[in-house]
Design a protein around this nucleic acid. Structure first.
Lengths: 253, 253
DNA sequence: GCGGCGCTATTTAGTCCGACATATTGGGAG
DNA sequence: CTCCCAATATGTCGGACTAAATAGCGCCGC
């Protein structure tokens, strides 16, 4: 990435433009843009852990936003464990171990630039751990509504492929519905993170080249096992699915 | 200042006192207290999902804090997925499925009142899914530093029992060191959540009655297996540990 | 007269500004 | 070496103004 330009304390010049350009779309607020800017700067490593970022007054002026908006953005980062600020000491970046990596926003920031291969591997490892067991639970607890949601997601995946955004959304919906079917709130919470991971990695697979393998049969196998209430089969099918997905992703990066 | 008392919504009366009492200790900032107050109110269900909470001006006056501080607190809640706010529409509580339940702060709020039995069960289910596999990974990847950290944590657990805060901290340190030993950043991120769960549930076990069973041997078994590099044994030992812990917790609630 | 449609009016969050309070740190006085 | 003071950066405050989204009103068409 462009690690060259570091001129002013955090790119005073192009800062405003960068913010506006990434926040223009109806929806994102100003502080959201600032949070995104700072968040990506930290997650990408442009501001290293332990480092102190510029004072509020100076930095908010540099970004051309009010101190209030800037502070609210920093609060968001604080809430996600990226930074910690104390009077006089300033605001400093916390060690990576304190970051809430599972937070959807943090994941989005992590994937907004060049994705860290090791981190992708870690995410898939988490999926390998969680999703097969989730499938097992889902096979035992799913109700009609759960099955319906999963079935519809599969239909959408079939209609649009993973090449389209709608298809990827359906993929996410499938995994989300599966996690929902466990009726476990902790796993459902993980769903947001895993869904994000699925989405970003799939996108990279697509970006790299046409998908060599059709992922649909794998999904169908998982669905059938869950519908049949066969926990072991569901777990196995899901493990195969995730491992194949990892393989595809790895070969395309 | 507050020379007049306002009959505001959201418990205007005891609000200020509650804030001060819970924020007095040197460290917690004012907005942190507000966030804690609102967070517990939401997580505990006092403000139901879909409900609109009082406007910023009114509510900040009721809590006797500036609008800035109040807003920064709301930003924290927004960052954790508890609420969403739009102009004119107001700030409304999001459905539970959108909450970042794994966020340490949210977990703390969830356990600050009466713990939801179902949620505790869900957390243990997550532990059963994650920790045995983590132990397996740790057995394969741990280095000397990891083993040292785990060993020290065990020593601390032996010195102080789980009846003391120091002992519980050691327990958390052990699980944390184990997750660290996987060298998987996603699992490390889960460590904070799992650690919180371990902590709170242990505390409840203690509160209920003297612990009938000594948890140390279980931990030692896990450590030995990891030190030996035996993944299967580590996984099995950890599963036993978590399941026994669940049993203890359940019987004491 | 009735129904739908667009415009304005209002409400509420979002942003901005400038001042003061508080806490921490680092250096200087005793 | 200790203690206190002052410099500094975050924290809190209050009020003003902007922007966005809803709801209600009035206009237009049927």
């Amino acid at each position: 990435m462009a690690s060259q330009e570091k001129a002013a304390p955090l790119t005073a010049a192009g800062a405003a433009e960068r913010l506006t350009s990434s926040s223009k779309g109806t929806g994102r607020r100003l502080r959201g843009a600032v949070a995104h800017y700072l968040g990506t700067a930290i997650v990408s490593g442009r501001i290293a852990p332990g480092e102190r970022l510029t004072g509020e007054v100076a930095n908010s002026e540099a970004l051309d936003v009010s101190r209030s908006a800037y502070r609210e953005a920093v609060q968001v980062l604080t809430a996600k464990g990226l930074v910690e600020s104390r009077p006089k000491a300033g605001t400093r970046v916390l060690p990576r171990s304190r970051w809430n990596m599972l937070d959807p926003a943090v994941l989005a920031w992590a994937f907004s630039g060049e994705p860290d291969l090791d981190f992708v591997r870690d995410l898939f490892e988490l999926r390998v751990v969680v999703e097969p067991n989730a499938a097992r639970l889902a096979a035992a607890r799913r109700d009609k509504a759960d099955l319906k949601a999963m079935k519809e997601a599969l239909a959408q995946m079939r209609r649009f492929t993973l090449a389209t955004e709608a298809g990827r959304a359906a993929d996410r919906d499938f995994h989300d519905a599966l996690l929902q079917a466990t009726h476990n709130s902790a796993l459902v919470a993980l769903s947001a993170s895993i869904g994000a991971a699925v989405n970003w990695t799939t996108q990279f697979k697509q970006r790299a080249r046409a998908l060599p393998r059709d992922p649909l049969p794998d999904h169908v196998r998982v669905y059938d096992a869950i519908a049949a209430g066969d926990g072991d089969a569901a777990s196995d099918a899901m493990r195969v699915l995730v491992e194949l997905a990892l393989e595809d992703t790895r070969s395309s990066m």
